[in-house]
Design a protein around this nucleic acid. Structure first.
Lengths: 243, 243
DNA sequence: CGGGTAATTGACCCGGGTCAACAGCAGTGG
DNA sequence: CCACTGCTGTTGACCCGGGTCAATTACCCG
């Protein structure tokens, strides 16, 4: 399978060749290129299409009136930006690119078509929606209860497993285009403290991080520090169980 | 309208009498009573039905292996517990009652029926789903960026406006069955600090809180402290705009 | 009146924020 | 080829918001 979205949806349901074809078609109609560090959508915009990240990293974020910024979630290749957003009046948050992005834009008709043609895909899309929400819940726990060290470790665990699911890891390594400032905004700490936390994780022999490349030197230990429980990602468990 | 769910969904679409009837029927088939401080669903359970809170308060929560607990969101009358959860293999979090609950349980068929019979309701359900996710995102910002005082103020603002939408406020007052420990677990602080934060808000003349009743003495000021932006609740804006 | 939960207080401490300077490095233009 | 600029990462000194621990005081209910 060459299409990232298809690859991702396969975590949630066994797709047939027909399904894969449908997805490839749909994500091929309208695609857009976005340069690094630009806004894809801005808070207040009227959402018109559903977007799919085909390549590159992006973040959802929200800003407080006084300038504080929180990264709300990280969008990786294969990720959808809100199934059915166009039902909402206005965007309540922004999406910004981290690296160069290739994104597909799907109109309402295209999605309706997919759901009519393939119940399997429809199901997979629903699941991806449910999982995205589950991830958001886990972020709530992360920010609410974990210490800085634990939060950072948790973020790395999540990203690693999500990337792995779309074939973007090599053994224990993956790209990490997020700067320390990005990491700090995702984990609710200052950039200075993010720096110190990373040094701490390095010193403990858990990770290596240099030139935008993350190496997880001791995954089990990292998982342990983060109290990471993979369940919330619901990767590859669903199709076996429900019908 | 006497049905809370119908009342809630009216924020998202103009329901006809037919729609209201459908909702009332569906939420009347199977109902359950839950005593205060019990688990409704537990992490690890296989979700079988979609639940609707008809009366009482509940919370979603997650626990870390070492006992730390984070309340992930608050469920008020009219709230749904995850449209289509039964697609997921296992619950990744728990739901616990705060006060005595009356909940309706809807099977897959009932929901399918609703969506087939009424596109308006289907749309409203989707919107409620999108809004729930938006709330979760705002909680991420709350926990990640705001100070204790701001977080607590924000929580009160959110609850007040959500309760207002289902007719559960009287001018500037509403019930507040959450204990200080609950509030602390929702805002990611210790119970001791929650206590001090509440005293601070009281001393500033923003709120009164006693015998499970919250009075907002200065809503504008509270909104200001919380940097509360109502937009993310998407209350009563959508139906006018899209089609 | 007794027992249990929820709220409150005080003393002390620490994780993480703040401020400010500085270093490394890539890209740009002269 | 080098000076200049701007971003990212690093470091140190200091401080404060909020955590910890432990005791006490309401309450509520049977």
């Amino acid at each position: 399978v060459s299409n990232v979205l298809a690859l991702k949806l396969q975590q949630y349901a066994a797709l047939g060749p027909q399904d894969v074809h449908l997805v490839s078609e749909a994500t091929g109609v309208t695609t857009r290129l976005v340069r690094p560090r630009e806004d894809v959508v801005r808070e207040g915009d009227r959402p018109q299409v559903v977007r799919v990240i085909l390549d590159g990293w992006a973040v959802r974020y929200k800003m407080l009136p006084d300038g504080r910024r929180q990264i709300i979630s990280i969008l990786l290749p294969g990720d959808l930006c809100d199934l059915n957003v166009y039902l909402l009046d206005r965007m309540d948050h922004s999406i910004g690119s981290i690296s160069t992005l290739t994104i597909a834009e799907l109109g309402r008709e295209q999605l309706d078509l997919i759901c009519e043609e393939s119940p399997t895909l429809c199901r997979a899309l629903w699941l991806e929606n449910l999982v995205t929400t589950a991830v958001q819940r886990e972020w709530t726990v992360n920010l609410g209860q974990r210490t800085a060290r634990e939060r950072m470790a948790h973020l790395f665990c999540e990203l690693f497993f999500r990337l792995k699911a779309v074939g973007m890891t090599e053994s224990n390594r993956c790209e990490m285009p997020l700067t320390q400032t990005d990491l700090s905004e995702a984990t609710g700490m200052t950039a200075v403290h993010a720096n110190r936390t990373l040094q701490d994780l390095r010193r403990s022999g858990l990770i290596e991080l240099q030139s935008r490349m993350l190496t997880i030197k001791d995954l089990d230990a990292l998982i342990d520090v983060a109290m990471f429980n993979r369940n919330y990602l619901h990767q590859g468990t669903e199709q076996r169980v429900n019908q």
